[in-house]
Amino acid sequence: MAEIMYWEAIQRAHDEEMARDPLVICMGEDIGVAGGTYKATKGLYEKYGPLRVIDTPISENSYTGLGIGASFLGVRPIIELMSVNFAWLAMDQMFNSAAKVRYMSGGQLTAPCVFRSAGGAAHQLGAQHSARMEKVFMGIAGLRVVTPSNPRQAYGLLKSAIRCDDPVYINEHELMYNMKGDVPDTEYFHPLEGSEVTRSGTDVTLFGYNISVHWNLKAAEILDKQYGISAEVVDLYSLSPLDREGIRKSVSKTHRAVVVGEEEAPVGVCSEVISVINEECFFELDAAPVRVNSALVPQPYNHTLEKAAIPNAEDVVAAVLKLFGKA
């Protein structure tokens, strides 16, 4: 077990899979000669050459489509969209081609592609470089959506996504590429479905994914130390499909749920998780489940406004206290 950074974990998964299978390729803006904006493809161009590590023009929809077309012939492209904001431009190909081709061809064609992109608000990147779009991807039939909250998941989810015959969208986070964490030294495949109990608790479940798992862990610490509330933290690394059974199990144990995401409400991962709670275990609830989200504003540039728009551990604590009638 070695401690490596999130970007190193992603790079390692690329490297191992490309070394194993000559049909695994990667493509995107600045990923080759420049080594990748977040270093996720560092050194691969030198090792595998321009036919397999493709620096693309800034044409998101068409280079995504090009990768999808190649996947029809059994190529396994890892398509990087530098920022998820640019994925808006590639959604036509992701949704209309990759996600639907298997169904509309009656199972004849499949698009075993991996789409990766950095989402979320970083530091003052402004309205057009701070999007959270996982809510859009997870509503598309035929597309798997996963989102790693640590280096181990970043490595293992990419490994599994490359091998899987279904198209997989991996939602990373701009602020997490330098996060350190343990990753097994031996090859590791993270399950594409399911969820993880990151911290066990008995009084309330804090559901989160990606960066919000870390807010929830911090909140759980505060709740335990300062208020004597035992919070369970569940990491929903698979957004599509959601782990209905994992959600049910945790809520059936704690009987209270707070769902936390950096996305803005309304409409999204959090509202979907609450729907699942209602469908799976409504009568287990001791209180109505609530969500903690970003403000519904285009992400502001100003540092103070930006901070105010995004939730944090204190907001999660406040939501829990309210749930317990302590606020």
Partner: peptide, 19 residues
């Protein structure tokens, strides 16, 4: 989708090139 097959065709050609 009008124009949708353009990049897919180039991708199929990329697949041919790889194989």
């Amino acid at each position: 989708l009008v124009g949708g097959p353009f990049p897919l065709a180039a991708g199929i050609a990329k697949g041919i090139q790889m194989k």
